[in-house]
Design a protein around this nucleic acid. Structure first.
Length: 258
DNA sequence: ATGGTGGACCTTCCA
């Protein structure tokens, strides 16, 4: 089962590239972030034509997440299932695809340390753990949480740690909450496979960062033990960040034996 | 040269 995640930075702007990529890579499931679409504008028929079911949780101008699957798509949940107030933003959608509980996440950026949005980010990550508790029997299930986490777990995941001093994405409270997801029972399967490699999923559009290989790794496919044990390949698809009109994120792909 | 890129959308916000 091939599972991918891709922050497309507007599905409207990126649809031709996403179509081409689906035909080339043929993932079984792909989680999309930053669709920036209303429900009405989501191109479900385009995906249907490529053999994929889909579900979208969007709000229009910002955010928006989707799951696109060719191995079934059932038991959809929009947003958090923790029984608290609804999330004001469209940042989480989950469904069961091919027997796996898939969660597509777009974690808040945080903007600046101590900004209101930063505290929203921290509480959002706390709620994500509660959501997993509410929607699974626990980490013994086949569970995937895939998306843009807006956290670089360690200094190996940023091209120059000095540049990020005092910035979001690398602070202890953010990294602590990332580790809480691993403590829950999820595995960073790409990092486990490549423990020492500089692997980046996001490059700022500015200053030629991609061509200088100055990126950060903030997009992950996290998988529970049963899946992680069956990992076949884990990679970041640099081709997805090349060429004309790319997203600022590259797709991240993991494959698991059936 | 006090910017730089790109997407939302129309004036400024967001990443």
């Amino acid at each position: 089962m091939r599972i991918a995640t891709w922050n497309v930075n507007s599905l409207k702007a990126r649809l031709p590239r996403v179509e081409e990529w689906l035909e080339q890579v043929r993932p079984d499931v792909v989680c999309l972030q930053e669709t920036k679409l209303t429900e009405d504008a989501f191109p479900a028929l385009t995906f249907q034509g490529l053999g994929y079911d889909s579900v979208h949780h969007g709000e229009g101008r910002w955010n928006g997440v989707a799951i696109v699957s060719r191995v079934g798509l059932e038991d959809v949940v929009n947003g958090f299932a923790d029984g608290i107030e609804p999330d004001p933003d469209a940042r989480l959608v989950s469904a069961r695809c091919g027997g796996v509980r898939i969660n597509a996440v777009y974690v808040p950026n945080g903007r600046e340390v101590d900004h209101d949005h930063y505290h929203y980010k921290l509480s959002w990550l706390d709620r994500l753990v509660a959501h997993l508790d509410a929607t699974t029997e626990g980490p013994s299930d086949e569970v995937v949480v895939a998306g843009d986490f807006n956290i670089a777990p360690t200094d190996l995941d940023v091209w120059d740690p000095a540049v990020f001093e005092g910035a979001t994405h690398v602070t202890d409270p953010e990294r602590h909450r990332y580790r809480a997801l691993l403590d829950w029972g999820l595995h960073d399967v790409l990092r486990d496979r490549w423990p020492d490699e500089q692997l980046y999923s996001y490059y700022d559009y500015q200053a030629g960062r991609f061509h200088k290989r100055e990126g950060v790794r903030i997009d992950f496919v996290l998988a529970s033990q049963a899946l992680a044990d069956r990992g076949l390949l884990h990679l970041i698809d640099r081709n997805g960040r090349k060429g004309s009109k790319p997203s600022d994120h590259a797709p991240v792909i993991s494959e698991f034996a059936a």
